[in-house]
């Protein structure tokens, strides 16, 4: 299984950081996610982890988002 999207369904871009308020990806990272290689996705997730730490947020769970 490929690297799952970190989307947690809080899909608003923060005007302060330029990152999504849910998953902390920037708009370019969200746009290219579905054609990104696994290596690129891991890089994005590392950046997300750094940004969440900077913002004082808990790490995102490594599982897929909530399933409807």
């Amino acid at each position: 299984m490929s690297v799952a999207s970190p989307c947690i369904n809080i899909c608003h871009m923060s005007p302060d950081t330029g990152w999504c308020e849910g998953c902390q990806r920037n708009i370019d990272e969200i746009t290219r996610w579905s054609r990104a290689s696994d290596a690129d996705r891991h890089q994005i997730l590392l950046a997300v982890a750094d940004r969440r730490e900077l913002l004082g947020l808990a790490p995102l769970a490594q599982s897929e988002g909530a399933r409807v």
């Binding site: 999207s5 989307c7 369904n9 899909c11 746009t31 579905s34 054609r35």
Partner: peptide
């Protein structure tokens, strides 16, 4: 063809 993968709400 570009896919923007969203979550479950969108």
């Amino acid at each position: 063809l570009q896919v923007f993968e969203r979550g479950w709400l969108s």
